[in-house]
Simulated scan of single mutants.
Amino acid sequence: MTILVTGATGTVGRHVVRALDRRGAAIRALARDPAKAGLPAGVAVATGDFLDVDAMRAALSGVSTLFLLNAVVPDEVTQALVALNLAREAGVGRVVYLSVIHADRFVNVPHFAGKLAVERMIEAMGFEATILRPAYFIDNDRTVADVVANHGVYPMPLGHKGLAMIDAGDIGEVAALELLRREGAAGPLPSERLTLVGPQTLTGPDVAGIWSEVLGRPVAYAGDDTAGFEQALRRVMPPWMAFDMRLMAERFQTDGMIPQPGDRERLTALLGRPLRAYRDFAAGLAA
């Protein structure tokens, strides 16, 4: 049978496809433009998106397990519910869904609340599911690497509570392992949630300190100005999204993204190797 990977050309989805491909899985990747997908040779690509019902029906035909990942967009919940309803129509019973850590707590943050709604619909529709709840992606900081390197400032207002940042490659590999576990099961498996975290819980000053060590020169933490953060983001994204990101940053500062006891050990055992650290990411970019 076949695993359908949505979001297959994005930050996490590419890692999911590669991890499945390395393990010899039958994969179908959903992409708007197959010519630009850039996925491994031999991976079947289905053309379409979540709101193209006919294309989604075709993409889901013959699929046994669904990896559901949709972007932060105004109609994120609608997209997910269209996909889930079409999956159920196609007889797909198993889902791995990429949600977010603290989706049930950060309910004032639009994209967190949206992912919680999708989690609840997955449960209500009776799918056998693994809900993945990752913390802040280490890879998000690719967008600020030039600022760090050229201006000596780490600009993300992460605050002082700490975020257990995780590498996108680790997320993708965990997702692939869960997809294969459900795909290969002889019978129904219970649904579960996995909190995905990295090896360290880092504050804004901690991250600036890592960059200082990697670059060999001082890097300052820009501070906790979420209003200024919103205004900066409005230069590169729509105002609604910039406001969403500001609300998220405010919860970083009041709550953090803190793992529960055993979260890291569970992931390390699942992967069979250490989780990738922020320092490895920063050193790779600096090199």
Rank of each mutant, 00 (worst) to 15 (best):
R14C: 06
R14Y: 04
R14D: 02
H15P: 03
V16W: 13
V16F: 12
V17H: 01
V17T: 01
R18C: 11
R18T: 11
A19M: 02
A19V: 01
L20K: 12
L20W: 06
L20M: 09
L20N: 05
R23N: 08
R23H: 03
R23Q: 15
G24L: 09
A25V: 02
A25C: 13
A26V: 07
I27Q: 14
I27R: 01
R28Q: 01
R28G: 09
A29M: 11
A29N: 04
A29H: 09
L30P: 09
L30A: 11
A31C: 12
D33Q: 10
D33S: 15
P34T: 12
P34E: 04
K36D: 11
K36S: 15
K36R: 15
A37H: 04
A37D: 07
A37P: 09
P40A: 00
G42P: 04
G42M: 06
A44P: 05
A44I: 00
A44T: 12
A44G: 09
V45C: 01
V45W: 10
A46D: 07
T47S: 13
D49M: 00
D49Y: 11
D49N: 06
D49K: 07
D49L: 07
F50Q: 07
F50C: 02
L51I: 03
D52M: 08
D52N: 15
D52C: 08
V53P: 04
V53H: 12
R57I: 06
A58D: 13
A58C: 05
A59K: 13
L60Q: 10
S61R: 10
S64F: 01
S64R: 15
T65L: 04
T65I: 08
T65E: 07
L66R: 12
L66P: 02
L68D: 03
L69T: 08
L69H: 05
L69Y: 01
N70Q: 00
N70T: 15
A71W: 02
